[in-house]
């Protein structure tokens, strides 16, 4: 104990120093280590979160780009198909129209031909009628003086019969 006294040992000072140190230990623990460590941990988690989010964002962007490409390709295909369809349809329609018009033309032509034929027939008929009438008139006029009434009639009938027979 004498040695300790020589070194300046003093129980009160010793206790004072111990209390001092414990107080500073407590204060540093509360004010320095804990907040700083918490902050470090917080920053670590936030950085991790940020990196994760960035990665997620990158993936989402990639996916979106791929999707976009897909959609674009689909749209292109569709538009191509639409154009093709329209083309074939147009060709079909034009063909149909052509057919129709040809048919119509033929029909009109046929009609015209028939009409012409009919008219020609009618004309012929009327002509033959006229000729018959004319010939009857001619016969009556020319034979009237030569034959009697009875022969006249017989002759005319015969001629008419012959004419008609010829005609038919």
């Amino acid at each position: 104990m004498e040695i300790l006294k020589n070194f300046g040992f003093d129980p009160i000072l010793l206790v004072a120093q111990i209390v001092n140190f414990l107080i500073i230990l407590f204060i540093l623990k509360k004010l320095l280590y804990k907040p700083v460590m918490d902050m470090l941990k917080k920053r670590e988690t936030s950085i991790k979160e940020g990196i994760k989010q960035a990665e997620e964002g990158r993936l989402a962007l990639e996916k979106a780009l791929e999707e976009e490409k897909k959609i674009l390709k689909k749209a292109q295909d569709q538009s191509k198909k639409i154009v093709e369809d329209a083309n074939t349809e147009a060709i079909n329609i034009s063909k149909e129209i052509e057919d129709n018009s040809r048919k119509q033309a033929e029909k009109i032509l046929e009609e015209a031909r028939r009409q012409i034929e009919q008219e020609a027939k009618e004309t012929e008929r009327r002509l033959s009628q006229n000729i018959t009438n004319l010939s009857i008139e001619l016969l009556t006029k020319s034979l009237g003086q030569m034959f009697g009434e009875k022969e006249q009639k017989q002759l005319i009938e015969k001629a008419v019969k012959e004419l008609k027979g010829k005609k038919s």
């Binding site: 300790l4 070194f7 300046g8 040992f9 003093d10 000072l13 010793l14 206790v15 004072a16 120093q17 111990i18 001092n20 140190f21 414990l22 230990l25």
Partner: peptide, 10 residues
Amino acid sequence: LNTTLGLALV
């Protein structure tokens, strides 16, 4: 020595 002994005791 009081300081260092105090620290050592703690």
